[in-house]
Amino acid sequence: MDAFIRLENVTMLYGNNGTSAVALREVSFSVGAGEYVAITGESGAGKSTLLAILGGLQVPSSGAVLMKGVDLSSLPADGLADFRRETIGFIFQAYHLLPYLTARENVMVPMSPLRTSAREKAGRADTLLASVGLSGKEERLPSELSGGECQRVAIARALVHDPPVLLADEPTGNLDSSTGEQILDLFSGLHKSGKTVLMVTHNRANLFRATRSIRLQDGKVAEDDPLMAPRQAL
């Protein structure tokens, strides 16, 4: 499988004035298009930092991140924003929905800067909300939705530009197991539809759904197992 995402000796240091902490140490791996990768590791292992770097939210201290052949470090801030919009969908543990917007409007937010008509944007949002099982709840505010429903809205928002890559940071971390399963079903469906999924997770069940597991330890890749080894990975 050709490398869709490639990390080359990525190191990330935090802090300055001599008191730096290493979040990632010379991390290198590749991800092929259509893979479903679970990134695991203990707290502080560098999982979230890795996800932020993969999504172009953060620039590594050294090393390179290539996605679809594009070196993200070569892109300016706005170039990265465009790249994120076109290529990556983010899903956060805390959903990060805008509380004053309805479900439909939250899904429409990434389309705000575009000159598309309001009707077209709303139509796209409604289609996506229907695809995540939220038909009839388009007008509800996040405060009127359950945690699982909020996460579904966040997934619909991540899919609004039909990105080939989904990056999810503990997407079931705030949900009960039953709701979490439903969300993971959604991810499995998206993976089957051809999306490349990279998910930071502590959820053991999710490891069985992924096609590959990468375990981080002290900022390094401790295990990279395409055949899945959930017990060791956890």
């Binding site: 999504g55 939210l57 801030a77 706005d78 924003a81 465009d82 994120r84 919009r85 076109e86 983010f90 956060f92 990060h96 805008l98 937010v109 990434p110 705000s112 800067p113 928002r157 991540a158 530009h161």
Partner: peptide
């Protein structure tokens, strides 16, 4: 606080300023 989310979903700096 919300700007990070908007940036993450692809807002350019100009859109944030706007």
């Amino acid at each position: 606080r919300e700007i990070g989310v908007l940036r993450a979903v692809g807002f350019r700096r100009k859109a944030i300023l706007s």
